[in-house]
Write a protein that binds this DNA or RNA. Structure first.
Lengths: 334, 334
DNA sequence: GTGAAAGCGCTAACAA
DNA sequence: TTGTTAGCGCTTTCAC
C-alpha cells in the first residue's frame, strides 16, 4: 500500500506538496497539482487517516453508547446522530451495552483511547454518579435520554414529565379516573420523571394514585408483560393503562391479547414512544411521541458545535413530547 | 493528556517498559510493574490507540454499510455483527447509505482510509459490478444481504430462493392458486432470487403466474402501499399476497386497512422478515423469517476469521429461511 | 530484565 | 511557490 512518500518520489515533489494537494491546504501550481493527482490515481493511493489523526489530533469519529440498538427508540436516536454528523465527515461508532455497567465502562474507555472526537452517552448507570465521572468531565460529551445529575455536560433529553402528564391528562379528559401505570426504574431520570408527570397529572385532577395499579417495571418487554397481567387480574382493575416505554408496551399488549382483553372496550391503552407498528394495530395505538430521531440529531449537532467552537457553558436540550391520539384510548365503559 | 513518555519519566523507566507493562508483552519485574501501574493510575493515563494503530497496522474497527438502520432487518444484522466482533475487542462503525450510491462510495473510501480491519457491505449497487471493485478486492470484506456477482469475497446471504419458495408453497398448500406477489428490484440478488423462488414454486404446482398480480416494487414502504392497492383494485384480484420485504409489507398492510380488506377472509398475507410487531397484528402475520441477527453475527465471525487466520478461499454462507405460520394466511373463501 | 532509538504515515513550521 | 524536517504517541528490534 503506497504512502505519501511513494507519491512524492514518483511525482518528483516533496511530501509536503502531496499533502497540500490532497488537503487543499496551500497553493500548488497547476502542473504540479495535476502530476500529483495523476500519480495518486495511478498507484491507487489511499491517504492513511490514522497517521493523519495522530498529527492533527482529530479522528472525525463520534461514539454513541446506548443500551440496545434493537430498541426502535435507540435506532432512531442513532440514525439522527449519524445524519447530523456524517454530513460533516464524521463516522459513528456504535456501542450496545445491554444495560450492562461493565460493558458501558469498557466502551467508554475504548472510545476515549481511540480518541473519539465526541461521545453521546445514554448511560445504564442508575443514580447521580458515574464511575468514570472524572474522564467523562474532560471528554467532549453529550448525555442523552438519561440524566446523570452530577455530571457536567451538554445534554439532550425527552420531556418526560410533560409527556407522561399529557398521557394521563388525555385519559382523564376521556373520563377515566381509574388509571394504571407501568413505570420504569426510578434510578433512571426517564423512569423517575415519567412517574413524576403521572403523579402531577393525577394530583392536578384530584385523583389519588392507586398503588396496586402502579407497579414499577424495568423497561423491558417481559416486565411489561408480567405487570400488565398483574394489573388486569387484580380484583379491581383500572379502566385505562399508561405504559411508560415501548418495550413494556409490547409486552403489555401481548398480555392483554392472551387474556382476551378488548382495547379500548375493556381498557384504554396509551403507550410511550411511537413506533412503525402503532398504526397497524387494531385499534391503532394512542402514544406519546418522543422524537428520538430529533434527539439524536440534536445531540450530534451539539457535539459538533462543541468540537468546532469550544463553547464554555453547558446546554441542556429538552425535546417536547406530543400526544398522538389513536383508537386505543376511549371513554370508559361505565 | 499524558503520554507514554510522561509515564516513563515519572516512573524512571523506559517507554519500552511502560509499553510492555500495558500490553503484557514481555516480562517486567514486580517492582517496576507496580511502579509503572501506580504512575499510570496517578496521571490518569489513557493509551493512545491511534498511535498504537499506526504502528501495529490494526485498528480493531469493523465498518458496516447498510442502506438504513431504521429497517429492523438491518438493525438486527448490525446488532449481530456488533455482538460477534465486540467480544474480541472490535468496534463497529455504522454507515447508512439510504440506497444512495454516492454515499456508499464515500463511506467505503472513508473506511478504507481509516484502515478499518474489516468491512461488511450490504451494497445498494444493482447489477454485477461495483465501481470500487478494485479496492474492495484488496480489502477484508464480507458482502452481506445482496450479492455482487463479479466480486470475490466472503459472503453471507439469506436463502432468498428457498424463503420465497416456502411462502408460495405454504399458500398453495392452503388451497390458493390465485397468488399475488410484490417483488423487489431484479438488480438486487435479493429481489431477483425471491422472484425466482416464487416462480419455481408456482411452476412446481402447475400454476402459471399472472403478471397483473406480480408487480415489482423498490423495497420501500410507499411502493408496498401503492402496489397492494393496485393489486386489490384490479378487476380480478388474487386470494393471497406475498410481499417480499418488511418495508413493503408495512405499506401493503396500511393499504389493506384503508381499503377495509379483511385478512385472511378477503385475502391471505405472507410477509418477508419477522418483526417484533408481527405477532401483535390482528390476525398475527404469517412470515418468512430470515434470521438477520444470525446473518450479521456470522458475517462478523467470518471477518474475524479472515483477520486472524488469513484464509485463502472465499466462503459463501447461505442462511436458511423458515416459514412462521400465523393467522394472516388461511384457505381461500371459495 | 531493561533501555535506546528507529520508524509507523502523516502535517505543518520554518527555510529557501 | 516548494522543500526539509521535526514530531504526533506508540511498538519493537537490537543492544546491553
Amino acid at each position: 500500500m503506497p504512502t505519501i512518500k511513494d507519491i512524492a518520489r514518483k511525482a518528483n515533489v516533496s511530501t509536503a506538496t502531496v499533502s497540500h494537494v490532497i488537503n487543499e491546504t496551500r497553493f500548488v501550481s497547476k502542473p504540479l497539482k495535476r502530476k500529483v493527482k495523476a500519480v495518486i490515481e495511478e498507484l491507487g493511493y489511499q491517504p492513511n487517516r490514522i497517521a493523519r489523526s495522530l498529527v492533527i489530533q482529530k479522528t472525525h469519529t463520534i461514539g454513541v453508547i446506548v443500551s440496545d440498538i434493537l430498541n426502535p427508540f435507540y435506532t432512531a436516536v442513532v440514525r439522527g446522530l449519524e445524519d447530523a454528523t456524517s454530513a460533516f465527515g464524521y463516522n459513528v461508532m456504535l456501542c450496545n451495552t445491554d444495560e450492562d455497567p461493565d460493558k458501558e465502562i469498557k466502551y467508554i474507555r475504548l472510545l476515549l483511547e481511540k480518541r473519539a472526537d465526541g461521545i453521546a452517552l445514554a448511560t445504564c448507570f442508575q443514580g447521580n454518579e458515574h464511575p468514570l465521572m472524572g474522564q467523562l468531565n474532560q471528554a467532549t460529551l453529550v448525555t442523552i435520554v438519561r440524566r446523570i445529575a452530577r455530571l457536567k455536560s451538554d445534554a439532550v433529553f425527552a420531556d418526560n414529565v410533560g409527556g407522561a402528564y399529557k398521557a394521563i391528562e388525555h385519559l382523564i379528559s376521556l373520563g377515566h379516573r381509574r388509571i394504571g401505570v407501568i413505570s420504569g426504574p426510578s434510578g433512571f431520570s426517564s423512569g423517575r420523571e415519567r412517574l413524576e408527570g403521572v403523579l402531577k397529572a393525577l394530583n392536578d385532577h384530584d385523583i389519588s394514585p392507586n398503588e396496586a395499579w402502579m407497579p414499577t417495571g424495568d423497561f423491558k418487554q417481559e416486565s411489561g408483560y408480567l405487570l400488565a397481567k398483574k394489573i388486569i387480574q387484580c380484583k379491581n382493575p383500572p379502566s385505562a393503562l399508561f405504559v411508560s416505554n415501548n418495550r413494556m408496551t409490547l409486552g403489555a399488549l401481548k398480555a392483554l391479547r392472551e387474556l382476551g382483553i378488548q382495547i379500548p372496550k375493556d381498557i384504554s391503552i396509551v403507550g410511550l414512544d411511537d413506533t412503525e407498528w402503532s398504526i397497524l394495530l387494531n385499534p391503532p395505538l394512542t402514544v406519546i411521541h418522543q422524537s428520538p430521531y430529533d434527539m439524536g440529531n440534536i445531540a450530534g449537532k451539539m457535539l459538533l458545535g462543541r468540537i468546532f467552537k469550544k463553547r464554555k457553558r453547558f446546554k441542556t436540550n429538552i425535546i417536547p413530547a406530543k400526544l398522538i391520539e389513536r383508537g386505543s384510548s376511549a371513554p370508559p365503559r361505565e
